[in-house]
Write a protein that binds this DNA or RNA. Sequence first.
DNA 1: GACGATAACTGCACTGAGTGCAGAATTGCA
DNA 2: TGCAATTCTGCACTCAGTGCAGTTATCGTC
Lengths: 208, 208
Amino acid sequence: MRLSFGTVTLRERKRERTRRAVVDAAVELFERDGYEQTTVADIAAAAEIGTRTFFSYFPTKEDVLFPEGDARIAAAVHAIATREPDEGPADVLLRALRIVGADSDDLTSRLAALRLRFIMEVPSVRGRALQLQADGQLQIATHLAAAFPDRLDPVTAAALTGAFIGAVTAALQMLVKDGHPGDPAELQQVVQRATDVALAPWSTRPRS
Amino acid sequence: MRLSFGTVTLRERKRERTRRAVVDAAVELFERDGYEQTTVADIAAAAEIGTRTFFSYFPTKEDVLFPEGDARIAAAVHAIATREPDEGPADVLLRALRIVGADSDDLTSRLAALRLRFIMEVPSVRGRALQLQADGQLQIATHLAAAFPDRLDPVTAAALTGAFIGAVTAALQMLVKDGHPGDPAELQQVVQRATDVALAPWSTRPRS
DNA sequence: GACGATAACTGCACTGAGTGCAGAATTGCA
DNA sequence: TGCAATTCTGCACTCAGTGCAGTTATCGTC
């Protein structure tokens, strides 16, 4: 058992490399042919692995679009863990949102764009995304309740987290539904409005 | 084109009867063998229709568990439409929740119990449920914005609706996750707490 | 009550996702 | 170098879902 952080053994490095190759191949094919038209066999062939092997890297075809797993959730949990003494639950959630919104989509932007597109277009992808979101919410709520044991029981923490994420998600959903492309400025403003709606009674610090 | 409300022609009545038979057969088999172990062919056979015909009644296997379609959403939309002059957006949402929570699960309780169970156990069912919820949210938000044109733009309405439904959903999810059966009293209390969290700054009437 | 039009039902053949298994290949470690 | 553990892969299989074409049942009309 290794303690160090990075992948070390040859096996693990090779596996990680292959995993990336699978994602890259999938992105390429999805962009070219679309989600439904691309079969798992196509992706496997492009990544030079057997079709059967694909399923040892990703449990389903949809999961190729979410290769980071719960990285965003981990970031949010970290934001909760490293809270300042004067931060309330709402402040922590806002900071977590800012962190998560900032980092995740730079190098990965092709994947992110594809993901957003298929979340809107393909039911099974949409379903998977919502499922991951719901699971993440619950995890965040659990950690939030643990971080504020005197102020939040688990159910209230879940309600707060659900209100927060639900507001942001629904606002963005409404925005893109009305044929809106990704205008960063307005996007920021919409998120601001949504968090205001959800967290107004909880904020203990001046709005940034 | 008929104007009357009920199903009239022989064709339509027969189709509705068969549809019910499919749902009943599915409930029976799902209860006995579980979701995954029951195939669409099994359900079709039990309902005495061809396997192919099943898919002319329900687009997917999961949809048998949601045969009412958007009845709950329609009820919520109706609650919005019939609002009192002194009701604000939050009051309307609360009333809609009360109506929706009250009516839907009486005769259908076997189906409802099965649905809840599979939403927790079966990923594809969970995904479908979340998808239907998200779509419903958006519809409710749209109607809410239309009902309060001077107070709510569509995006803010979506944020409000998302916060409200997100809070309730997440709170209930947390509750059932901790091995909680359906205790009506505590359930009511949890919903109360969740709505308080989400709607506190919006309520224009005293809490009931 | 018969008749053409229309809608529904059904079997057949097919695609594609996902699984279980068993053998081959590769890597870790002594 | 050699043995153990892991990974890769093909094969055969199940099941959801689709397209098509032929049959059957219902509708509205005369």
